[in-house]
């Protein structure tokens, strides 16, 4: 049982914790606020915090200038596509490892994780050339393939740690009840693992949404997701803070919201189940 804590101490901790929390969150807050300012107010000195003329103008300018919605839909397709495809490949693999473990299961898992250690830049050129020659450069399908592959080890690992906690007897019961392998996975394993699968899904959507090596190097115009949309604001051109802020807010808002809702489930997933 936690002991009663003196109110004074609790107040002190509250102040410190909020101060630190706001400090860490401040860059995001500031970006969101700036996105509602005019360009002039955005660089005004002294900076105005809340008392300025709120405007939505930047958002429409950004949409017109850089076509936010096209990049947004690319991001959605690429991150959801690669995650779902990854799950489709990883669920059977994780089933095998968790429920029919062999002598080499652990080695296979370690090997899979070690492919994550492969620096992407080490294979940038071949992938770039292969994509150029097969017409996959700057296509969404190409990016879905690459992101599926780079996230596959993480998906398999995460699912493995969740599956491992499901008692094998329940799957055996299904087998005794006449379920074929397919039914066993679809009707018994998957529904039981829904929380684990959901957090795997969320984490991988977040990782894919924010992935900024392959998305920057393999896209130009057609398939460019939000990471590239933002990168186009990297060279300054006159007054652009408010527009940059609006674009940034639009790029991070969807994932920030998903992330906040799922933060509890994320911890386990993020650590491959090593911390609960």
């Amino acid at each position: 049982m936690a002991r009663a804590v003196s109110t004074r101490r609790k107040a002190l901790v509250t102040i410190c914790a909020w101060a630190v929390g706001i400090a860490i969150f401040f860059p995001i807050l500031w970006t969101v606020l700036t996105s509602f300012k005019t360009e002039a107010e955005a660089i005004a000195s002294p900076p105005s915090f809340l008392f300025f003329d709120w405007t939505l103008e930047n958002y429409s300018t950004v949409q017109e200038r850089s076509d936010y919605f096209r990049h947004f839909s690319n991001s959605v397709i690429i991150s959801f596509g690669s995650t779902l495809l990854g799950l489709l490949i990883a669920i059977p693999a994780a089933w095998s490892m968790a429920f029919v473990p062999g002598k080499r299961t652990k080695d296979v898992l370690m090997w899979m994780l070690s492919t994550k250690m492969l620096p992407p830049v080490g294979v940038l050129i071949p992938i770039y050339l292969l994509f150029r020659d097969t017409g996959l450069l700057d296509t969404r399908i190409g990016l879905v393939m690459v992101l599926t592959l780079i996230n596959l080890p993480i998906i398999v690992w995460m699912l493995f740690t969740y599956f491992r906690e499901i008692p094998g007897e329940i799957l055996e019961a299904a087998r005794m009840d006449g379920a074929e392998l397919w039914s066993e996975i679809v009707y018994v394993l998957t529904p039981m693992a829904v929380p684990g699968i959901a957090s795997t899904l969320l984490l991988n959507i977040i990782l894919s949404w924010n992935e900024a090596f392959w998305t920057l190097n393999l896209t130009a115009v057609d398939a460019a997701p939000l990471t590239a949309f933002i990168a186009s604001y990297s060279s300054p051109e006159g007054l652009f803070y408010a527009k940059l802020s609006a674009a940034s807010t639009m790029a991070i808002a969807p994932i920030l919201i998903i992330g906040w809702f799922s933060q509890k489930q994320l911890v386990r997933g993020l650590t491959f189940g090593a911390v609960k």
């Binding site: 007897e169 019961a173 005794m176």
Partner: peptide, 21 residues
Amino acid sequence: VPPAKRGLAMVFQSYALYPHM
């Protein structure tokens, strides 16, 4: 013959009920 086809039923020590059903 695989377990599903043997026509036997089993009651497990842990009961092995499907928790989501």
